[in-house]
């Protein structure tokens, strides 16, 4: 694969290769000196047209741990409308000799557009509602770490599915590894369909016998748009210890962060033994190292 835009066209083997490399990278990160020369001489640019400190830091750490040079470009899409275009920004960076671009934008498709304009490698750092492939890879990595296999495992994704790139990427990726994916949310926040997932407006149906539950962040703008009433959401979709009794006994809990405690999930759950939230963040660096490594030097035939 030349770029990581989404998982269209990816095979299980390619995904497993990346996850295998991520395990090697995770070992590197356990060493006292957490650095390898794998990407020495390469330059990675994080190009964020939408602000996101966590994702940017995770990518930058990943690149630096492999000795790449890192530059960051951050701006608001709104200021782009008046000034320089996405294309001009990227071509400017290209002229400086960038090898890989990590692109984040609030509109679906910007990394796809970028891949047509630049010669370097494009990694989707999250584009609108479309995709967040490294998040799905780190979720998968974390689930495999805890469950051993995803074959036949039931994973429930809960919340604002319609607007979620995390949901879309996980729905693309998890079934590739044999998981059964359910998505649940209020009808105003559900798509009409998502290939690879079962949809339901009933949380209990998604949670029943689930091996893991991925809770999504509920954004304030959904309430402001009048799409959902907060109290109604909390009453019917908040993931609680009680509701989790429908799931498998030690069902795991994931959240891509940042969390709204006591809105989409019962506040104390995030700190319980079920919670993999900190593992997700931790594994993010190793997974992103693996992605950069594969795209820049470890190209498969």
């Amino acid at each position: 694969m030349r770029h990581l835009l989404d998982f269209q066209g990816w095979t299980r083997g390619q995904v497993e290769n990346i996850l295998d490399t991520a395990r090697v990278m995770a070992e590197v990160l356990e060493r006292p000196v957490k650095k390898v020369p794998a990407l020495q001489g390469f330059t990675v640019a994080t190009v964020f047209f939408e602000p996101s400190t966590r994702t940017r830091i995770s990518f930058e750490l990943a690149a630096r741990r492999m000795s790449a040079d890192v530059v960051s470009f951050a701006t608001q899409a709104s200021s782009l409308q008046k000034g320089e275009s996405y294309k001009d920004t990227l071509l400017t960076l290209e002229a400086m000799g960038i090898d890989a671009y990590i692109i984040r934008a609030d509109s679906a498709g910007v990394p796809h557009q970028a891949a047509r304009w630049v010669k370097g490698v494009v990694v989707n750092g999250g584009d609108g509602r479309r995709a967040h492939p490294t998040q799905a890879l780190l979720d998968t990595y974390t689930l495999l770490e805890a469950l051993g296999t995803l074959e036949g495992r039931k994973i429930a994704i809960v919340g604002d599915i319609l607007h979620s790139r995390v949901a879309r990427s996980n729905v693309e990726l998890l079934p590739l590894l044999g998981a059964e994916v359910w998505v649940a949310g209020p009808p105003t926040l559900l798509p009409q369909s998502l290939p690879g997932a079962r949809l339901t407006p009933h949380l209990d149906e998604a949670l029943a016998e689930a091996d893991a539950v991925m809770v999504l962040r509920l954004q304030k703008e959904r309430m402001e748009a009048g799409l959902i009433h907060l109290q109604d959401y909390i009453a019917h979709y908040q993931v609680t210890e009680e509701r989790l009794s429908k799931a498998k006994p030690h069902a795991l809990l994931l959240h891509p962060g940042p969390m709204n405690r006591d809105i989409e999930l019962e506040g104390t759950l995030a700190d319980s033994e079920r919670s993999l939230v900190n593992r997700q963040v931790h594994n993010g660096v190793a997974v992103r190292m693996a992605v950069l490594y594969h795209l820049l030097v470890g190209r498969e035939g």
Binding site: G128, R129, A131, L162, R168, Q192, P195
Partner: peptide
């Protein structure tokens, strides 16, 4: 156009 493809592509 609204429908399964828009849902899949993540476009309004």
């Amino acid at each position: 156009n609204d429908g399964p493809l828009a849902d899949f592509l993540g476009l309004p």
